[in-house]
Design a protein around this nucleic acid. Structure first.
Lengths: 142, 142
DNA sequence: TACAAAAGGTCAAAAATGGTCAAAGAGAGG
DNA sequence: CCTCTCTTTGACCATTTTTGACCTTTTGTA
């Protein structure tokens, strides 16, 4: 069977996600549309038919300048425990290497990261893990 | 995600505040605009969209010679309707009082707590706030 | 007091994205 | 062929950011 445009876009996105560090990608709707030489709403169509929550994906977006569409895959929504994904612990270790965090601080932050999201569903644990990483980077950015 | 200018300015201001002694900074609108090579009204835009009362900030200003813009964080900048309950910030301050946390650590943890759950729905922000409080207490229980 | 200089404020237009929805098209099955 | 479903397209909408022209307030000074 010949693949439809929608199928090809779906596949493309899935490859990107599978290659991504954290099972999550951010794209520009327009850019993707250009890549496949189609109208932007085609992308929206693909997302709404093949990347739904039921399919195990979470999509978010923002309009306006620097707008984006983020597609995240969450494999097992009800798993317990911490999700080190993206590798937050690695980020913390790097900050320690570069002397921005000392041993005590690093350990404390790890402990907090793990325990602060104990009661969250999987996809939100990812977000918190991600958020802590981002917050740390920001905090030491200046 | 490529950050918009507004995002970068927001982040810059937040770091300055988090590092400040009293959660309050004074800037010159023009100076900040120059730092980011943008028009001054861009700064006003950032303030009016990301440092509102609802976000937990108070902004004051004065025009004319020696004018300034003061941005003060008066409570936890959670999103709309959030009540800092249980009062995480109070817990952190108490730990600081009892010398279990130093100033730097306390500020860092506050910053992380606030920012790690930026993108979470309201009910999960509460959970994270709660979780951080619990984790901290546990961490210093021995 | 009058006026200039030095801030900051307002507001609306333009630019940059993404979203919605319904009509038209294309295949598959009967 | 006919019908049903899925796909493709496009016109129009909504949101967010960026810019700039013009306005107001405060201070300094002749």
């Amino acid at each position: 069977m010949k693949k439809s445009l929608a199928d090809r876009i779906e596949q493309y996105i899935k490859v990107l996600i599978s290659r991504s560090e954290d099972k999550s990608i951010e794209i520009q709707r327009i850019e993707l549309a250009e890549t496949f030489a189609c109208v932007p709403s085609q992308v929206t169509y693909v997302l709404s038919t093949r990347f739904t929550e039921k399919d195990g994906y979470l999509t978010e977006s923002r309009r306006g300048g620097c707008g984006f569409v983020r597609i995240s895959q969450f494999s097992c929504p009800y798993s317990e425990g911490f999700v080190d994904n993206p590798p937050l612990f690695q980020i913390i270790d790097e900050l320690k290497q570069s002397k921005l965090l000392n041993e005590r601080e690093a350990e404390m932050i790890k402990y907090i990261s793990i325990n602060s999201c104990r009661d969250l569903p999987y996809e939100y644990k990812i977000k918190v893990s991600e958020g802590v990483g981002k917050a740390l980077k920001e905090y030491f950015a200046y």
